[in-house]
Amino acid sequence: MMGMPITIEIIDVSVTEAIFDTVFDYFEYIDEKFSTYKATSEISRINRHELTWEDSSEDMQTIFALAEQTRQVTNGYFDIQRNDIYDPSGVVKGWAIFNAAEILRQHGFENYYVDAGGDIQMAGCNSAHEPWRVGIRNPFNTSEIVKVLSLTDHGVATSGTYERGQHIYNPVDGNQLITDILSLTVIGPDIYEADRFATAAFAMGTTGIQFIECLDGFEGYMINKNKQATFTTGFEKWVLHA
């Protein structure tokens, strides 16, 4: 989806090859509809004014409604519109991962994760019958991790400038690129919630971690350009200590 690697792991013994196909087909469908890199996608047609969003598909209208709701709760820091072009990938990604995990749950699976480009929805246990172990990648050395989390039935999303170049703008303050912080990881009740707030809080710059601190049920870990990490007061409870 949108040029990102997708990994699905299912631990349950009832797993079949078919369920993987079902979930990957769903991501394929999302990509065809929402990718701004594809000229044939529905979002590209909207951006070319060939289609109004009122006449668009139900999923597209859902995404626009979710994006608008997110824009309001983040004081404008989440905005899919930039220079008259809509790019809803900031809300589509988390929403699609959430829906993919829902497909697994509805098929009766209990122990799995869905990872799309480093944003993760997890459920149940890993193969060692423990909570899932999630590493936070080191933005200064992408072959390293700087934190190990132990958790399940949550979403973990990381927003960062090191992923596919600098791609998050501050929409409130003159479309400035965010350069002070390199990475912001958010743990939320599900991946849709974690992803949209990670994106919005990252756009707030160094104050983004304070925004996460004030959100009930969310924790965050921010890494700045000086290799200093700032984390929310409840973050430690998810950290696995060796």
Partner: peptide, 25 residues
Amino acid sequence: PYLQQEAVQAQSANVNIISGATLTS
């Protein structure tokens, strides 16, 4: 709210999943 800080340090990589960058970056 006063938030804790720490220096970023590499950890042992015994994990199932990694949140963050992709190989694209």
